[in-house]
């Protein structure tokens, strides 16, 4: 039982530390933690697609963008409270993902990688060019109202912290349970050998479509939280670079491992902040750190065990 107990204690300790963090840290660092939390949402949702199902998706930012813009447009032009746009953002991103997935998901490995990069770029360029007359071009959309939760208007990083990390907690619970279910098992089987998975009776096409839509819809809902936090969004927040960062978080932490992916989010989103003292050399060190960490731990820092739970 102790093998199961130790991670539970570690998780509880981590959660407790997080809960008191906003009271101990400066506003600047709480804001950094808010960003880490948003990245954690993106990384956990990409982990479902990339880590569990093994679908090479390097365009996750596109679905994040669809969600964020849905929230921004609905809240600024129709006056819908921004947090109430969550279902709409999720649906919009999920629908877009389904549209992309139907023709594209039959592509294998690296072909899927470049196509998802391409989808990400097309979305960004469409936003810059204000393709639908709704997105404000390269200036983006501003004046997104502050989120209101149970009558409280959330303004400070400390207040947003609990909203964002609450969402992370829900995500960990939901995805952890999915991962431990027949759905997670089917995804990992597909990742290991798609032909054998189909031959074992798994409806691989359906499972791949489901996970791609679900992970993307989740990124769309993370987009709502991002729009609510920033109050201003513009295309440059949704470029290739964001997709790359989230991709790196999943693999650096350990594909398929929820604690690993959280660690990856902390490292990838947090390390450049810690390296701030290095001024302009910080990204140099960051790139080097990525290389070294992958060479030293090719399966990630906290990989999933073959036998164990999530």
């Amino acid at each position: 039982m102790s093998r199961r107990g130790a991670p539970a204690v570690a998780a509880a300790l981590f959660a407790a530390l997080l809960c008191i963090a906003p009271f101990l840290l400066s506003t600047y660092w709480v804001d950094v933690l808010d960003s880490v939390g948003l990245y954690a949402l993106l990384a956990l949702s990409l982990n479902l697609i990339l880590g569990e199902a093994g679908l090479y998706d390097m365009g996750h930012a596109a679905f994040f963008a669809v969600g964020a813009y849905t929230a921004a447009i609905l809240s600024t032009s129709l006056g819908i409270p921004v947090l109430l746009t969550l279902p709409a953002s999720g649906c919009a991103a999920g629908l877009f993902a389904a549209l992309v997935a139907l023709p594209v998901l039959r592509l294998r490995g690296d072909y899927l990688l470049i196509v998802t990069i391409g989808v990400g770029e097309i979305v960004r360029i469409a936003l810059v060019n204000d393709a639908f007359g709704l997105t404000g071009g390269s200036n983006g959309i501003f004046g997104i109202p502050r989120p209101v939760l149970l009558g409280w208007r959330l303004r400070t990083p400390e207040q947003l912290f609990f909203l964002i990390w609450g969402a992370v907690a829900v995500t960990v619970l939901v995805f952890g349970r999915l991962s431990a279910s027949r759905f997670g098992r089917a995804l990992r089987a597909i990742r290991d050998d798609e032909v054998a998975a189909e031959g074992s009776g798994i409806d691989t096409a359906r499972a791949k479509l489901t996970v791609f839509v679900l992970g993307s819809a989740w990124a769309g809902m993370a987009g709502t939280l991002f729009a609510a936090k920033m109050t201003v969004i513009s295309p440059e927040s949704f470029g290739f670079w964001e997709s790359v960062l989230v991709f790196a978080m999943v693999l650096l932490g350990g594909a398929g491992s929820i604690p690993g992916v959280l660690l990856g989010a902390f490292l990838v989103a947090g390390l450049p902040e810690l390296f701030r003292g290095l001024a302009s050399a910080r990204m140099l060190v960051f790139g080097l750190a990525l290389m070294v960490m992958m060479v030293v731990r090719p399966r990630g820092l906290w990989p999933r065990r073959a036998g164990g739970g999530p």
Binding site: L50, Y56, V244, F247, A248, L251, L252, A255, S280, A281, M283, L284, F286, G287, L288, A289, L290, M291, V292, M294, V295, P298, R299, G300
Partner: peptide
Amino acid sequence: LSAVVSALGASIFLQN
């Protein structure tokens, strides 16, 4: 995929 991430790291490193 770990080589992909290492390659991304190398790209960031060289660019900077």
